[in-house]
Amino acid sequence: MSRLHDMGGRFGDGLIPVPRDEKNEVTNFEPTFKHKWHSKAWAITLAAGALGEWNLDISRHYRECLPPKDYINFSYYEKWLAALTNLLIDKKLVSLDELKEYVFAAEKGTLRKFSDKDVKIDQRIWLAKDVQKTLGWGGPSIRDTNVNPVFNIGDKVITQNYNPNKDISGGHTRLPKYAMGRTGVIHSYNNNHVFPDKNAHGLGENPLPLYTVEFKSSELWGELAERQNDSVLLDLWEPYLKLFPN
């Protein structure tokens, strides 16, 4: 059971949209943002996120919760904008009536930006002078806790099946469907990190051991594996794993 965003391994997708130059050779060049509105959708999402009303896991979950037909039809930044809009309403930063008023004005061509003196600045606003400082600090997800890891490097583990999120049915999780119920080996332990399955639902950070787990291609894809000895490594929290029964 999964959502559309969880697309690792699925069939049906065509060629990778690799950019090519005029000689039809693969090029590394691509503008950072293809359209002005892409950059705006991205920047207002970051700026609104800085108000502190939601965390990264919540915003990811909002994108995943877009109705399947929208998730499929929307381009990347349309998904961002739709999820942001839903967050703004749910977190009561904006009312639905206000949104409708601005949408109406945008469609009529009567959208008007207030002059600075008419804007009442919110206390939580992210100011331009703080941008570099905030970006430089980032949002570390490691937490100092006294939780000790249960597994050791080299342990054979099996991943949860069906519904990894034990609190919310259809809730946020970072265990992809293609790696559910599969056997892998602990490659490394990476300290304790905020647990998205809870944090995305406002249930607290619950930092837990995070491991990198290596799965053989043959274990994930069976006979379809391109080469048995290739592997896929995933970063997985302890509750996604149990020791492989000997």
Partner: peptide, 30 residues
């Protein structure tokens, strides 16, 4: 809520951006 947005993505962004700017929730310089 997103289903109320205009169909043109450029207008959609403009509407949300202007609303947030006018409410003092984001700063255009940021």
């Amino acid at each position: 809520a997103h289903s109320h947005l205009p169909s043109d993505p450029e207008l959609r962004v403009k509407a949300v951006e202007t609303l947030l700017l006018n409410k003092g929730l984001i700063d255009s310089k940021t």
